[in-house]
């Protein structure tokens, strides 16, 4: 079985994550969609590493994981700060600016 199938699976997961980011209003759920997109990219990198028979893809995926961990820490801190300020984590809050 060709490892390219894993790349197609990664594309499907990426689209589901993108749909979640566009659809959901809950900030935490949208953030989980971002995480899923990052994981789909990781899966594609590992599959390419397998196809080319070299380790560089796996190392790139490792770096993506580290950056994703840092991103989650800062993102969740921002969500908590927003929650403290306005008692909600809905992404629709900026609609208040509409006249």
């Amino acid at each position: 079985m060709n490892p390219m199938n894993y790349v197609i699976l990664a594309a499907i997961l990426f689209s589901i994550g993108a749909a979640a980011v566009l659809l959901r209003r809950n900030a935490i759920v949208a953030f989980m969609g971002v995480e899923l997109m990052l994981n789909a990219a990781n899966l594609a990198l590992v599959a390419f590493s397998r196809i080319h028979g070299e380790l560089d893809g796996q190392i790139m995926a490792f770096f993506v994981m580290v950056v994703a961990a840092a991103e989650v820490v800062v993102g969740l801190a921002i969500i908590i700060a927003v929650f403290r300020a306005r008692q909600t984590i809905s992404l629709d809050e900026p609609a208040e600016l509409k006249g």
Partner: peptide
């Protein structure tokens, strides 16, 4: 993975 991630939607 696909069924699990569909719960996001």
């Amino acid at each position: 993975t696909v069924t699990g991630s569909l719960s996001l939607l």
